[in-house]
Design a protein around this nucleic acid. Sequence first.
DNA 1: AATAGTGGCAACCGCCCCTAA
DNA 2: TTTAGGGGCGGTTGCCACTAT
Length: 273
Amino acid sequence: MARQKQNDGAYIRKGPWTAEEDEVLINHVKRNGPRDWSSIRSKGLLPRTGKSCRLRWVNKLRPNLKTGCKFSAEEERMVIQLQAQFGNKWAKIAAYLQGRTDNDVKNFWSTRRKRFERILQKSTSSNSPKNKGKSLVHHEFPVDKLGMVDLPDLVKANQLLNVEAEQQPMLEATLINMIPSSDFPPHLSLSQLPQPQLDLSFLSGCKEIDQDPIVLNLLDMFGEEIPPLGLEENAQGNKLGELKDLSTPDIFFDEFPPEMLDYLETLTSSSEL
DNA sequence: AATAGTGGCAACCGCCCCTAA
DNA sequence: TTTAGGGGCGGTTGCCACTAT
């Protein structure tokens, strides 16, 4: 167990919480409500910082938490939709999901993101040696004379990555949905950018996969535009039409349904054989 | 059976905002 | 008006368990 001496000479305890500590914390909340976190240490109840106490309460001890319960498909879909709407505002997203904390949502998203990046890495590095180590995520996207991103060229750019033919449609879909904001010219306003939407119509002409039950199911579920939640902010929390925050390229797989992720993984892993 | 890869999770860190003095 | 402290929040890290090779 890590202990750290503070300037005032008192020790701060870090690391996993014990049942005894939890009990002290619960008693504090019973008496005072979920506030005055820093007083827990100043009164000598626990050698923990106020922040640590608050975090423990919010993430583990608070009533009605769905601790140890995996995200349902419905919850996954909600997170994806809300993340597309709010960006990485985990606390805000968690407020829509009963029994889930911002940490839960953040961890779920982080796992999903890692998985997505691994799939993309596989899909690009499994082909020609010249593409080894190239990632779709960091690819340079074509921009026209006015500095606008050229979407048809964007899709064509995918071909430079020498992806297997049967993977092209899926990867084109991901490409359009994962354009890093840092690749856009700074003067570009949001209204000029392609809005992240899951358009699966291209699948209908693809003979390799248009009979696939998973794809048919996807078309059924996501063929129509996902209804807005009645909020007017975009993924970066800006009002529509305002300049986009270019510092956080986080929207590259917005609205990418879990089923699609599963399906992509099967494609990339089968291409490795 | 051993090892590497991955997912899931808990907890800390650092930044920012708010508020009271 | 300024400033310090508390709290909220997003990012990150590290650990453990499980699974595939």
